[in-house]
Every structure is written in structure tokens, then in C-alpha cells.
Amino acid sequence: MMKIAVLFAGLLAAGSAAPGLSLAADAAAPVKEIMKDTQTNWASDASDWIDVFEESMLGRLYSKDFSDKYKAAAQNPAADEDGISPFDYDVIVNGQDACPLQDLSIENGQPANGTTEVTVKFKAATCLEGAPNRDDFTTVRFEVIEENGKSVVDDIMVQGEEGQGPISLKATMAQIANGQ
């Protein structure tokens, strides 16, 4: 029993002495919340759309730089006619139409240079009869950093058109803010 207590105390001390070690374990926390809301939005019985960029979420789940870029993009009057978002599509599913998300997986990468990449995969078109991409997986990469002692999303990378690399949502927001 004494050995277990000493081992437990040692683990606690190691965790508090190296807080960066614990970050990798919770880097997916903001991503899981965003994906839970995205799943709810695309569920067949969804009644109220959850804005994953709503003001309180911006301050809690996203980095200051990401939030600032989002707010600047939202100021562009040409961004979106409904006044809710600077986007005219769901940036997570990377489209205007989707089905209830199927086969969702969330995987933490290894922290590197202060960033942990959290990869999300899901099928978004399974209910679209005749769609050529019906069983294809959509992959979204969330770049997660530590800011003010907590994990926050600093960028969202979606796959571009065929032959095009990943597209940074922060870069897209900067273009929208500049009227492009």
C-alpha cells in the first residue's frame, strides 16, 4: 500500500512540474465540444442551429488570434446576408449540405512546436442518394495550442479541391476581412 501511495505522489509531482505533459491529453477537449455541436446541427432531428463561433464559444474554445480574425471577417458586410456568420457554408463539414455525421473519429497528434494537431474524420454525405462521394470520409485538422493555461483551437484546416492542399480557416477569414 505504501508503494502505491509513493508512486501516486510521484505521478502527481511529475504532472505539476511539467504542465505541458498534461496538455497533450486534453488537446482534443475543445475539438470534442465543437464536433458535438456540429453533430447536433446535422442530426436529422436538429431544430436549433448551434453557432460554433458564438461569442462565448469564441472566448472559450478558440485562441485570441483566431477570435480576432473571426470578428474581423464578421464585420465584412459582403460576408453573409443573414448577419450570423462570415461564411455561407458550414466550415467544419466544408459544405452547405450534409447528413447526420457517421463514423466520427477524433485523434490527437503529438505536440510539436507548441501545437497539437487533432484530426477529425467523418462521413457527411451518407444520406445523399446518388452522390459520388457518399461514402467518402471528410478530414478536418484542428490546430490546438495552449493559451492562458488551457487548450484552444488556433486554426481549422479543411481539405481543398482535388489536387489542392489543406485550406486554413484563419487565412480564409483574413481574405473575407479584406473583402476578397
Rank of each mutant, 00 (worst) to 15 (best):
M2Q: 15
I4C: 15
I4K: 15
F8W: 06
G10S: 08
A17R: 00
A17T: 01
A17W: 00
L21A: 10
D37W: 12
T38L: 06
T38F: 09
S44T: 03
A46S: 07
W49E: 13
V52C: 06
L58W: 02
L61T: 00
D65T: 02
S67Q: 09
N76V: 05
D82T: 05
G83S: 11
I84W: 14
F87N: 07
D90F: 12
D90M: 13
V91C: 12
V93D: 00
Q96V: 09
Q102H: 07
D103F: 04
L104Q: 09
G109I: 09
P111I: 11
P111T: 06
A112I: 11
G114I: 02
V120W: 03
F122Y: 03
L128W: 15
P132L: 10
R134Y: 11
R141C: 13
E146S: 15
E147D: 01
E147R: 08
G149Q: 09
V152G: 01
V153W: 10
D155K: 02
M157I: 09
M157H: 04
G160C: 02
G163N: 11
G165E: 07
I167R: 01
I167T: 01
S168V: 10
S168Y: 06
K170G: 02
T172W: 04
T172I: 03
M173A: 02
A174Y: 00
N178M: 13
N178Y: 00
G179P: 05
